[in-house]
Design a protein around this nucleic acid. Structure first.
Lengths: 202, 202
DNA sequence: AAATAATCATAACAGGTGTTGTAAAATGAG
DNA sequence: CTCATTTTACAACACCTGTTATGATTATTT
């Protein structure tokens, strides 16, 4: 076997651990998700975890990356056949916590955000991932400006942040509050925001 | 001393404990906020905590109530001299995590939301408090409909939930992301949302 | 003043935590 | 097959956790 596929195997094992951790965190929160619990969920002992991760924080960090990557992936897939202003809408709709997997992802992210105070490494990593996310969104907006789909006098950095805020708000509420939005209502909220980006045609 | 003032004293002590807990949770997260740490922060021993609270979850539950009440208070105060559509705007601006106290409150709330999975009691309480919050917002909207300030064909239940989602999204981002919104940007985001509620005048 | 209740300190308990080191098993290369 | 490396299991470590019980101290009431 080549060296590359060995690394892939390693990476796979790490992903398996991360997925087991994700399931537990989504089900019972970060506090109750101990290394032993993760190992049990995976069907092994903590020896595996300590072999692939220096410590627990590094495991959580890796999980955060996996989760964010998964979100970006989902957005990229759903958007590939869509053109124009609709790209923004479908990107949003693709990542709301509607399916079990997306609910898990959002719960993990929420657990992280609550866990971050006092954990400098995690905060830094989260900031970085957030920046990447914002940048890709900003690129999306830039392309739309160039095609004339949205107004040209927008502060795209701010607009990208506003998009993320809207996403986070809806996502958090779908998990933490009894309110469950219908598809129609979700689209309405997004369309309102989209409309605020359109060029003012008289 | 009358019986009432005794109860007030009790309530005061409980509040003191809750405030100490709030400070620690905001600083170093829920995980590191043990009962002993809270007691140390308050300058007493765990005997006080166990005397005023059955267990830790009950303490956290009380803290959640205190925090939510504080938010409602702040909104009520800032809104009392404002009339019309502006009431919505000032209510929002009054509770964003701009000051140290508000940052603490939001961090505590975030810690809760991340802590909730697997803790039925806390989830139930959060749902209840969320409902109260939504109801008062809905009342606000109803009043605005009656004065003709906003459109009459709105689903106020949905609109109230949308407001909260907007609030949560901005608040979460202000804490968890490097983005810091300027006053101008905050007002812009809110005004956009307000505009979507206005009656369509030709 | 005596008795009752509220408040708080202290210590112990049983259990769980992340981390570390060591040795066994599995795997791959020469 | 042999040897070296990777992968895993296991046990022990020191420490921290929430909870509970027991007294001491203080406050309130009778």
């Amino acid at each position: 076997m080549t060296k590359l596929s060995v690394e892939e195997k390693q990476s796979d094992r790490r992903s398996q651990v991360a997925l087991a951790a994700m399931k537990l965190i989504a089900e019972q929160g970060l506090q109750k998700t101990s290394l032993r619990a993760i190992a049990h969920e995976l069907g092994c002992t903590t020896g595996v975890l300590t072999h692939y991760f220096r410590n627990k924080d590094e495991l959580l960090l890796f999980l955060l990356e996996v989760v964010m990557e998964r979100l970006a992936e989902k957005m990229a897939i759903t958007v590939q056949d869509v053109e124009g202003i609709d790209r923004l809408t479908v990107m949003m709709l693709a990542v709301f916590p509607t399916t079990d997997e997306l609910k898990q992802i959002w719960r993990v992210w929420l657990a992280f955000v609550g866990y971050m105070p006092g954990h400098v490494g995690l905060m830094e990593e989260h900031k970085t991932l957030y920046q990447e996310f914002k940048t890709s969104l900003k690129n999306e907006l830039t392309a739309l400006v160039e095609t004339g789909a949205i107004a040209t006098d927008l502060d795209l950095d701010f607009e990208a942040a506003a998009w993320i805020a809207l996403m986070d708000g809806i996502g958090v509420n779908m998990l933490a509050a009894p309110q469950t939005y219908s598809d129609k209502q979700l689209k309405m909220m997004i369309n309102r925001h989209v409309r605020s980006l359109l060029p003012n045609i008289e």
